[in-house]
């Protein structure tokens, strides 16, 4: 790891000003960033820890009924505190990584990193959540821009994520057993405006919506409704864990499992 200055501001405003420094980076729980620093894949001049900002931690209910999660809230807290209001999201949070990772890793960190096999992007995209930053609100459909890429500007901080609560929802994850990342994970949410299906782990471009399945499921919310559909293998990830065709098949299988569980 290269040397850097460490800062731990107490407010969002202080964090924004610390991040204005050239090559400064925000640090969430560090469960991805710290291993990357050790590999010298990142070399910030300063790390600005967001975990000491009280206003960015915790789970609450907004005036509009949405579930609001502070950007620096660890996965374990979401798993415990969102269970009553949004059980599918809490279950997803409770199965990220392992317990020690869940005690440190944060929802804002996961979303800002946008790992193509991370769990939270599927929930955010399927739920039609809103990413609230220090400067604006970003709809989930506009936030994810491909592999490790998001709509965030340099120095922009995810302060909060707001999830509208769907009528029914579930996440089905086919887990890579060593890393516990999703080999393919599908989050299905049935909302007043129709069904949304978001897939993580499968595509080379990161999380995406499977619109064909959304249409079929909006007409009939059952696993059988998508029995005749298939996902092309083009653009799916191929690695030692699975071929593109294998992952394409998993997308359908996990969607059906999520629908059955919702």
């Amino acid at each position: 790891m290269y040397a850097f200055d460490f800062e731990k501001p107490k407010t969002v405003a202080e964090a924004v000003s610390a991040l204005a420094r050239e090559d400064a980076m925000a640090l969430g729980g560090g469960q991805t960033l710290i291993p990357s620093l050790k590999q010298r894949l990142a070399a910030p001049s300063a790390l600005v820890s967001l975990t000491g900002i009280a206003e960015m931690r915790g789970v609450c209910t907004g005036d509009d009924g949405a579930l609001c999660i502070g950007g620096a809230t660890p996965h374990a807290v979401v798993a415990a505190e969102a269970a009553g209001k949004y059980p599918a999201l809490a279950a997803l949070a409770g199965n990220i990584g392992d317990p020690a990772v869940r005690n440190r890793g944060t929802i804002g960190g996961s979303l800002a990193n946008n790992d193509p096999a991370a769990d939270y992007p599927a929930a955010v995209l399927a739920s039609g959540a809103t990413i609230v930053t220090n400067t604006r609100r970003i709809a989930a459909d506009d936030f994810f821009e491909g592999l490790f890429t998001t709509a965030l500007e340099p120095g922009e901080i995810i302060v909060e994520v707001r999830f509208p609560i769907p009528a029914r929802a579930a996440y089905a994850k086919f887990q890579q057993p060593a890393s516990r990342f999703a080999l393919t994970g599908v989050f299905v949410a049935k909302t007043a405006g129709g069904v949304r299906v978001a897939v993580t782990g499968a595509s080379e471009n990161g999380v995406f919506r499977w619109s064909e399945a959304e249409k079929a499921l909006s007409a009939s919310f059952s696993a059988d409704a998508i029995a005749g559909l298939s996902v092309p293998a083009d653009g799916m990830v191929g690695d030692l864990h699975g071929t593109p065709a294998y992952r394409a098949n998993l997308v359908k299988v996990m969607t059906q499992r999520a629908v059955s569980a919702a």
Binding site: F6, K8, L27, G30, A76, A100, V101, R104
Partner: peptide, 16 residues
Amino acid sequence: HVDGKAVKSCTVFASD
């Protein structure tokens, strides 16, 4: 344990 919670001490900065 940090404040009672299990964490991986190789993936946390002392300053944090």
